[in-house]
Design a binder for these strands. Sequence first.
RNA 1: GGGAGAUUAGCUCAGCUGGUUCAGAGCAUCUGCCUUACAAGCAGAGGGUCACUGGUUCGAACCCAGUAUCUCCCACCA
Length: 917
Amino acid sequence: MCPNTKSKNLFLPSHCTKQPYMSISTKYNPKETEDKWYQYWLEKKFFRSVPDEREPYTIVIPPPNVTGVLHMGHMLNNTIQDVLIRRARMMGKNACWVAGTDHASIATEAKVVALLKEKGIEKKDLSREEFLKYAWEWKDKYGGIILKQLEKLGASCDWDRTKFTMDKPLSEAVLDTFVHLHKKGLIYRGVRMVNWDPKGKTAVSDEEVIRKEVNQKLYYIKYFVSYQADSTSTFSTLASGEGGGEALVIATTRPETIMADAAICINPGDERYRHLKGKQVYIPLVNRAIPIIEDDYVEMEFGTGCLKVTPAHDLNDYELGLRHSLPVIDILNDDGTLNEKAGILVGEDRFIARKKIAKLLEEAGQLEKVEDYKSQVGFSERTDAAIEPKLSMQWFCKMEEMAKPALEYVLNGEIKLIPDKIINTYRHWMENVKDWCISRQLWWGQQIPAWYLPTGQYVVAKTRQEAFALATDLTPDTSSLTPDQLKQDEDVVDTWFSSWLWPISVFDPTVCGNPDAKGNADLNYYYPTNDLVTAPEILFFWVARMIMAGHEFRGKLPFKNVYLTGIVRDKLGRKMSKSLGNSPDPIELIENYGADGVRVGMLLCSPAGNDLMFDESYCEQGRNFANKIWNAFRLVKGWEIDEKLDYTNSVAVEWYESRFNEALLEIESHFAQYRLSEALMATYKLVWDDFCAWYLEAVKPAYQQPIDKKTLEATINFFERILALLHPFMPFLTEELWHDELFGSRTDLDCCVVAAYPSLGNVNERLLKDFGAVKQIISEIRNIRNSKQISPKEALPVAIKANSDTQYNNYSGIITKLAVLSEITFASEKLEGAAAFIVGRDEFFVPLSGNIDADAERERITKEIDYLSGFLKSVNAKLSNERFVQNAKPEIIANERNKKADAEAKIVMLEQSLNLL
RNA sequence: GGGAGAUUAGCUCAGCUGGUUCAGAGCAUCUGCCUUACAAGCAGAGGGUCACUGGUUCGAACCCAGUAUCUCCCACCA
């Protein structure tokens, strides 16, 4: 049974329908409908999708972080997906929206570590297994929150398919992928300079580093020059800064790394330092001698033209060091504190060490000056810690080969990026792609399937047994090797190394790592998916890599369209963030405005492809719209049929039929271009303006009067189509109304959520045009009434001097009703002493008893004549311009001639009116 | 430093192939209305040098060049 018939009916029994508006609330109350219908939809399995003969329409959700709670970005993103999926479902497609969450290794591990710390447990005191047990407990407890929140929004996901990126099969897919790519030579291990996150204590990929401009200090430090050419010198006098020894001054933002210096570098062409070639300098404070080297890399103009080379702590310096065979002295611990190699300030955090060392240098007289300086510093995307370049052994995935087809899909249009302006950026990235550092020094995630032999060699295999088999091939002395001796790599893979498989692994994880596998029925049916809706920020992290994985493992693209939403900002244009506290709580918004109101609000302010400046007032507008529909329903609900009444509303009914189809066409076109905001606005106007303000006002009977059967039936039919059209945007309200007895009795499964989307019908252009004139006439009369302060209750007579072939007889009923007229007459001459206006080529007169202000009227008409004369002049100028007549398209010229004729006719009419005054 | 995009009403944005769908929409504002569906409403109105300067064209919000401002992406100047 439908909730509406089961529960206490909102509406009164039929014997009370005389004044139903008195008994139904004048406001739509979302709280009474939302949970009720969501549960009903679940119960009836309307969101469930299994392969069948229908065309599939598939979306995989960008899996939200399992630690996350719903924020405004999710709201926008998932509203869009739900609109698309609901619409596809109603259009008869087999709509499948796969939900799930991402294990987000760094973020989740950080959260669990913090939580344990509160309980007094340190991660380092736990074994890997113990830690993971805590992590899973935590995930089981809180991991579902965000999905529950999505239900509140109305998300019509097939929850039976919900996946988690660390589900066993999906994790196995990750391992298979690793093994496969390693076998192919696309994954390798090596010592490289990586981005080290000292807070997360792990390496992160280039994409996870966010560069921000930071106000820093540029320290100018004196390094004294040794008199001897080699390092055997003693330096007692120099080291103390006495004795007038020559000093080189270098500029650095990182004085705390001077203890790791391996050389000072100058430009070979730099005259200032030519005499120092081959000499050495002493590092201040620690007095270690380092050579002066030359390299073109150094800019003579920057700073002093001398560069301190610190291979362990700077990528460029590292490369410089490689060229000049410099030693790498790493003075930092994994957590960013100084280690013993620093010699001084051991155990201090790098930023504290920076301040202290500046002080020490100053005291030693080796700090020449300090300048303010702005520069870009990398921060970890997940922990916001300043990234430390660090030399370490990591696993990498080669990108160049995989990037090529992934770029091709986008360039040849097989995958459409919306908006397409982003293609340039995508191309640039794909053409300059660097290898992907995929290892993370964490526990929460898929452990890298690499196994180390006691010899230091390693093999890559999914299981210990398989690894052992491979290992025995490596070792000559197999008898001494046991499986237990293999030690698995401690690291896990980057989270994105699992989520890049998402569009495949949610259907059939077994094909990852096995491109030749046929794949199961689900995969073959749903893949490639249709639309991906995500944020532009993760275009490279995720979207590009999914395309790579899709090509690698399926030989096919993973989705056809990528809709990139904007960033949700506040009214002032600031990105919404927890730290700024400028983000409203989405659940609270739903409480206040209803899910439908919030959905409409989100979409109203989200122009395709642009950031959106969110403001609660949009939700208010959405709520008001829901209320408007609710009240339109109350009106129609209250009408009683009188079978004896004649059908007098055919014009209004036919007009709305045409208008509906016209709007539908427009809406389709907006959807085809993913202009959801405009599709919604077109729907909004179709309902509010055309249906409520014009159609219903035109057909509604006088108070407590019955209506004829045909009009009511047509109205109900329109209403039902409107509900279907609105459903993807406002699922709850439409479902609620759908089940009212007004629309007849419905079976349990006859729900709006699975109703047929309205189909296109005929558009009567002539009727639409005529009705446009009718609206204009009514507005003009209302305007006259308004400006003359005539009560809306006072019926006015109107005379029409028709000069066109418009059949006003057909429309006199509507005009009379909506403009509140006493009579309409047709005149062959102008009326004197009447308020006059022109619509098209026809003249209209409203006789007013002594109310005409001749002067004002004269002024108004003169003004209009002036305007039209100017207009005519410009048209005439065009038409008398030979080059225009020669070059312009014929239809443009014809149009100009029409304009000319219209303007001339109008001027004549106005001049006559002027004379009459 | 390199690249991409933007600038239209108070706000958020449409404006497609240059030409009456060309200056639009929604919200906000103002005026008048508690008119028996809705005041979370109804009716009506005002509001723009299309960033600026040139150019191309019979004709420019639209094409071109330059300027200004803003946004985003990429990049190793210590």
